[in-house]
């Protein structure tokens, strides 16, 4: 605050409109969209419906955390969907083999870290285009899943060995809030704290904002970039495990729409290289799933949701491109 003059004050207000207003804007969008759907169907505003929105949102919601962190460093991870599937299947497989739940989850997390390491090395160290590379990885992971499962899901409903997982995941709190939803909220808070209060978290923003400058200032750029992918894929694995436990089935087909939706979330949440925050990402998740839920409640077939999400992505990008131009 060395200088306070007229122009200074002005530019601070400009900053408010640019950055700090974004969560408010997203919240407004969320409220408006919710009100519209309530207009069509009174049940939309029920506690029951909202907890179901949260429940359907939590798979993509958790993955969007990682995708958002990737986007902060100007990367994409399209393999998240398949990594999530892999995680769910691996835990199911291990449980079947009699491995205790905690150890199975730990192994799956390690596998996620390895996937992230692989993507990170290819993208950060070998400087390959992240979009195409992770798209290719997704294909490779799908191949691996098919080789081991023949494309069949592992059902968890009838067997004793899956009970620890399913009962944990299907536990409800506050009436109708399942473990997954709590987990999602906890993860959002944890990652928010991680980004705000740790050196690595801050470094992610710095590396995303300007790699060369970060390098000169002593940050190990490649290590940070690799850790972004590791974080992203671990979150994907957690999401996949929670999904498997919640649905009582581990499937290879979890991943089809996840990359798309998580990228849509990251974009709608206003995440750009070097900037972004978890509150906005969370609001963006809610907006997208409110829209999806609202469409279903209006009796519009599933297929239209693809179109809706695609359109949201388009609009979000276009709005932001305009911002940049100003």
């Amino acid at each position: 605050m060395t200088v306070k003059n007229k122009t200074g004050v002005k530019s601070i207000t400009q900053k408010y409109t640019m950055k700090q207003m974004q969560p408010v804007l997203l919240l407004l969008i969320l409220i408006v969209v919710s009100l519209i759907f309530t207009g069509f169907n009174k049940n939309f505003m029920s506690w029951q419906n909202w907890s179901s929105i949260l429940l359907t949102a939590c798979t993509v919601g958790i993955i969007s955390i990682g995708q958002g962190v990737c986007k902060m460093a100007d990367y994409f991870d399209l393999s998240v969907g398949m990594v999530a599937s892999l995680g769910g299947l691996l835990v199911a497989f291990l449980l079947q083999a009699g491995v205790p739940l905690l150890i199975a989850v730990l192994i799956a997390i390690i596998m996620g870290a390895v996937c992230g390491l692989l993507a990170g090395v290819l993208v950060a160290y070998l400087k390959m285009n992240s979009f195409i590379t992770t798209f290719a990885l997704q294909s490779a992971y799908r191949g691996i899943i098919y080789i081991f499962t023949d494309g069949f899901p592992i059902s968890m409903t009838m067997k004793e060995c899956f009970v620890p997982l399913t009962s944990f995941c299907q536990k409800t709190f506050f009436g109708s809030v399942q473990t997954s939803v709590i987990a999602m909220i906890v993860l959002y808070v944890v990652v928010h704290l991680f980004l705000t209060y740790t050196k690595l978290g801050r470094s992610i923003f710095l590396v995303g904002g300007n790699q060369k400058c970060a390098h000169i200032c002593g940050i190990n750029v490649i290590a940070v970039q690799i850790s972004i992918f590791i974080l992203c894929d671990i979150l994907a694995v957690l999401s996949g495990i929670l999904y498997a436990g919640r649905m009582g089935t581990a499937t290879a087909f979890l991943g089809a729409t996840i990359p798309m939706e998580s990228i849509a979330v990251a974009i709608l949440g206003g995440t750009v290289a070097g900037h972004g925050n978890m509150l906005q990402t969370f609001l963006a998740v809610l907006i997208i799933f409110v829209v999806k839920n609202g469409l279903i409640m209006m009796g519009i077939p599933d297929f239209y949701q693809y179109i809706a999400v695609g359109l949201i992505m388009f609009i979000a990008v276009m709005v932001q491109v305009e911002h940049k131009g100003r």
């Binding site: 070998l126 390959m128 290719a136 997704q138 294909s139 098919y146 080789i147």
Partner: peptide, 24 residues
């Protein structure tokens, strides 16, 4: 070779091709 492996092979090939082409 079963079709499943082709996903894997495809992914590997794309990664290899891009790796070769990436100017470092």
């Amino acid at each position: 070779v079963p079709a499943y492996y082709q996903h894997l092979v495809t992914g590997a090939i794309v990664i290899l091709a891009i790796w070769v082409q990436t100017e470092r």
